[in-house]
Design a binder for these strands. Structure first.
Length: 304
DNA sequence: CTATCTGTTCTGAC
DNA sequence: TGTCAGAACAGATA
């Protein structure tokens, strides 16, 4: 579930709770999930967090970093000092913490604990030298992304740059147009191709195409200049909204506080099969499968 | 009970 | 080389 806005919300939370804490020990329940030598991160102090597409990076002061991808059902839950009240966990924290789906536990100094839950066990945590983060194979394949990895201030808090270090390349309108022009694949497939651009997943791809009034099956290289611009702006717009509302808790996503995001209340078209289109208020939203994923669109506003 | 659906990325086949 | 179905996994829903 976690796409760019969800991962960014988690990053902001983790930075808040973890920065300045040292990792005192690591409990690994799943060696498929935790890759690399956990001894390298013990004793390290968390200095910063970064995000590359849907990948989260936790930098330590000992030249090592923790890379992690939550895939569909990964969750980071922090328990310890500085948590705002109420501290109750959402029922979407699968199995609780620690619970049957807790695969890794990071014990921190000053009484903090970071739990990694992952019901479907697709996610991973990887220990990498900080100097090798950007050349790590997964990171290296990622395309440029909206905001270039630094997110616009979404209302509260300081404008949250991905602290220090380097981030992903910026997806400009011109780069976006070039990407679209190179393939006849459906526009939605291109938006979700992480090697073409980083961060956009199923929910935000659906909403961006609806906002731009473009059919998801439309061949990417067939879009006119005005449509390219509308789609580019729509992507920025829905991602900003996602961050503003703290992500979308449609399924397993929760924040490090164990709370749900709110963007699911503001879905433009995702999940609205059979409901009246929010724009034309005439047609019912249809659902098809495109590239193996649920795809929602208005047959009137988003004609092929 | 079984079949289907979920949503991200990797693998293998064409 | 690009493209795409199926797999990885576990649970909710029909």
């Amino acid at each position: 579930m976690p796409e760019l806005p969800e991962v960014e919300t988690i990053r902001i939370g983790l930075e808040k709770y973890l920065a300045g804490h040292k990792i005192t020990s690591v409990e690994i329940k799943s060696h498929k999930t935790f890759q690399g030598d956990e001894k390298k991160i013990i004793g390290g102090e968390i200095t910063a967090t970064r995000r590359f597409g849907k990948v989260l990076v936790i930098d330590l002061d000992n030249d090592y970093s923790i890379l992690t991808h939550l895939k569909l059902t990964g969750q980071y839950i922090y328990r310890g000092p500085n948590l705002p009240s109420p501290k109750e966990l959402s029922s979407k924290v699968t199995g609780g913490v620690p619970g049957p789906h807790t695969l890794v536990i990071f014990n921190l100094d000053k009484g903090g604990i970071l739990y990694y839950n992952d019901l479907r066990r697709f996610g991973w945590i990887r220990v990498v030298k900080t100097s090798e983060v950007e050349t790590e194979p997964f990171i290296k394949k990622l395309g440029p992304e909206p905001f270039g990895g630094s997110t616009p201030s979404a209302g509260s808090g300081p404008s949250s740059l991905t602290t220090q270090g380097h981030g992903p390349k910026l997806l400009t309108l011109n780069i976006f147009r070039q990407i679209l022009s190179k393939t006849s694949r459906p526009a939605k497939i291109v938006l979700m191709d992480q090697t073409k651009m980083g961060g956009v997943g199923n929910i935000y791809a659906n909403d961006a195409l609806w906002l731009a009034a473009i059919n998801p099956r439309r061949p990417a290289n067939n879009l006119q200049l005005e449509e390219q611009k509308k789609l580019y702006n729509a992507i920025l717009s829905v991602l900003k909204a996602g961050i503003k509302w703290g992500g979308a808790s449609d399924a397993a996503y929760v924040t490090p506080e164990g709370k749900e995001g709110l963007y699911q209340k503001y879905f433009l078209v995702y999940g609205r099969k059979g409901e009246l289109c929010l724009r034309c208020k005439k047609a019912k939203i249809e659902k098809i499968v495109l590239g193996g994923r649920g795809t929602y669109f208005c047959p009137v506003c988003q004609k092929l």
